[in-house]
Deep mutational scan, measured.
Amino acid sequence: MAMNGTITTWFKDKGFGFIKDENGDNRYFHVIKVANPDLIKKDAAVTFEPTTNNKGLSAYAVKVVPL
């Protein structure tokens, strides 16, 4: 089920960042999981599918909501 969130941290040079989800949890995401990576920036609103990996909470099918 899709969730909403906000990008809180973005490491462009490393290709990953973190999203604060609607429950207040931080989720890892990688640029290859983003549909529109050219719009990635700190504080951008996103929708995504929540999941977990071996390191904890993460996100896939991430879409940055255009302003």
Rank of each mutant, 00 (worst) to 15 (best):
M1I: 13
M1D: 10
M1A: 13
A2V: 14
M3D: 02
M3Y: 07
M3W: 06
M3R: 06
N4Q: 12
N4F: 12
G5C: 03
G5L: 03
G5E: 01
T6D: 03
T6S: 06
T6N: 07
I7L: 03
I7W: 01
T8K: 10
T8E: 07
T8S: 10
T9H: 15
T9F: 15
T9A: 15
W10S: 01
W10R: 00
W10P: 00
F11E: 05
F11W: 08
F11A: 03
K12C: 08
K12E: 10
D13C: 10
D13G: 10
K14M: 09
K14Q: 09
G15T: 03
G15L: 06
G17F: 01
G17W: 02
G17R: 00
G17H: 01
G17K: 01
F18K: 03
F18S: 04
F18A: 03
I19R: 00
K20Y: 09
D21H: 02
D21A: 04
D21Q: 01
D21R: 02
D21C: 03
N23Q: 07
N23T: 05
N23C: 11
N23S: 06
D25M: 10
D25N: 09
D25E: 10
N26T: 14
Y28L: 06
Y28I: 06
F29H: 00
F29Q: 00
F29A: 00
H30P: 06
V31W: 10
V31Q: 09
V31L: 10
I32A: 15
I32Q: 15
K33Q: 15
K33N: 15
V34C: 10
V34G: 04
V34T: 06
A35G: 08
A35T: 14
N36P: 02
N36D: 07
P37K: 07
D38T: 11
D38Y: 10
L39W: 10
L39C: 12
L39I: 07
L39F: 11
L39E: 12
L39R: 09
I40R: 00
I40V: 09
I40A: 05
I40P: 01
K41Y: 08
K41T: 10
K42Y: 07
K42W: 06
D43E: 08
A45Q: 13
V46P: 00
V46L: 01
F48S: 01
F48Y: 02
F48V: 01
E49C: 14
E49R: 15
E49W: 15
P50L: 04
P50T: 05
P50Q: 03
T51P: 03
T52P: 04
T52A: 12
T52Y: 12
T52C: 11
T52M: 11
N53Q: 07
N53V: 07
N53H: 09
N54L: 13
K55V: 09
S58G: 11
S58N: 05
S58T: 11
S58I: 08
S58V: 11
A59D: 02
A61R: 12
A61D: 14
A61P: 03
V62M: 04
K63L: 11
K63E: 10
K63H: 12
V64D: 01
V64W: 02
V64K: 00
V65M: 12
V65L: 13
P66M: 10
